[in-house]
Design a protein around this nucleic acid. Sequence first.
RNA 1: CGAGAUGUAGCUCAGCCGGUAGAGCACUCGCUUCGGGAGCGAGGAGUCGCACGUUCGAAUCGUGCCAUCUCGACCA
Length: 489
Amino acid sequence: MADEKKLTTRAEDFSAWYNELVLRAELADYAPVRGCMVIRPNGYGIWERMQQTLDQMFKDTGHKNAYFPLFIPQSFLQKEAQHVEGFAPETAVVTHGGGKELEEPLIVRPTSETIIYSMFAKWVQSYRDLPVLMNQWANVVRWEMRTRLFLRTLEFLWQEGHTAHASHDEAEEETRKMLGVYRDFMEGWMAMPVVTGQKTESEKFAGALRTYSCEAMMQDNKALQAGTSHNLGQNFAKAFDLKFQSESGAMEYAWNTSWGVSTRMVGGLVMTHSDDKGLVCPPRLAPLELVIVPIYRTDEERSRVLEGANRLKRSLDDWERRAPGRMRGENDARDGMKPGAKYYHWELRGVPLRMELGPRDIEKGQCVIVRRDTGEKASVNLLAIGEEVHERLIVMQDDMLIAARERREKHSVRHAISYDDFKSLMDGEGAFVYAGWCGSAECEAKVKEETKATIRCLPDEEFRSADTPTKCLRCGKASTEEALWARAY
RNA sequence: CGAGAUGUAGCUCAGCCGGUAGAGCACUCGCUUCGGGAGCGAGGAGUCGCACGUUCGAAUCGUGCCAUCUCGACCA
């Protein structure tokens, strides 16, 4: 059946489309444990590129990597009231080790604030020891009820930055700075535009003073929280006695921040760009930037074309503007598979550029380059092929961000909207709705109950509307804040 | 944790009126093919989710369990 080869389309069933795509593009597979997944090489390759990029960005902003234990004493989690309330329900607990019951159960980390700040307390004495700027790449476990590949699994991979500062303002600056780093990464590398802003009290991190987030719009017009940055105030410092002696000689509690992004971003990447043919991956994060598909009939053509394909591959590998071997390409010389089948194969897997090389191309000293995102084809001379490919990858990267931003704006509502219209919009195609909010948790909760939409964030200045909304979306009273409302993952 | 669905070959599923396990695709080998999912021939492949029961005999009937997926309450 030809239909078996096609994905369920986004229009038919967005959720089914996503699941099928992740499985068939071999990004991940279901593991034998409920709610857990195996990240396969195609998916892990994307994660590795995300890691490498972010890791460098963290180092460029002065952070150093470290590693803290997977197990956290249960009593640690309980030291910060809000924190334990938020995380206790979703923790995995180890009660036995080496065949014996443990004296104190160990929590498998859902996040590492407690254990990290307990150690910071040991290392920090003076204001001269501050700031402490650390990051760790780790796995964490949160016992979720309902899971989805990449978007929500019991165990996931992430990065958690943890810092300690001498003042509130310095911690706040760090919190905002790292949110900016996330935004730069998401837009510049993932080609995924985000709205940054502050979380409401009810949505903020358990134990934080303030939480900021990056919110991206998926193709079903739902929001995905793609990264968070928290100003933890002195909450954890007080819980773990993280104190320092200030310049004036007084003992003061340190100010902490934490910030993280996870493998969830891979899911966001998929839902931002991909189409009914499969994954569309922005070039900068693509493990494979291009694939060469040789085309031939006879044995004579075969040897001639394969030789040309190898030569092409080498010229890309050796292209002077990138370090040797840095152009990430593959020559798909598999025999017994027709070119068309190879096209579908690589389209499903999201390779940005396909280069078709046949006898006619060889004669003319050219090849056909096809862009994955637009399907646009061009015949390109082989003499300056490195330049041509490089240029196309850059343009494609930029175009993808522009397209995603246009899509988001098209589905954003910035005019006054009645609550009834809002409800039907959320039940229908969905949107990012910028509307007023009276500031009460009651209205926020009611809207969630009645429409399943939540305040994703109180957007930062640059995302706010030209005409500031004056009334609360639900109660109609005077608005104190402009809020971004949407259904979310 | 509530509701629904599904567990048979690597994948999608048929078989269910109990009586020796099937198809398509994929895979292996051979030949012919190759500018958008190739054709023919041969071949390999399954403790029918698990347990117990009914029966001369269970993929098929009964009971229980388990797992996964989807949808709801909680969340990066």
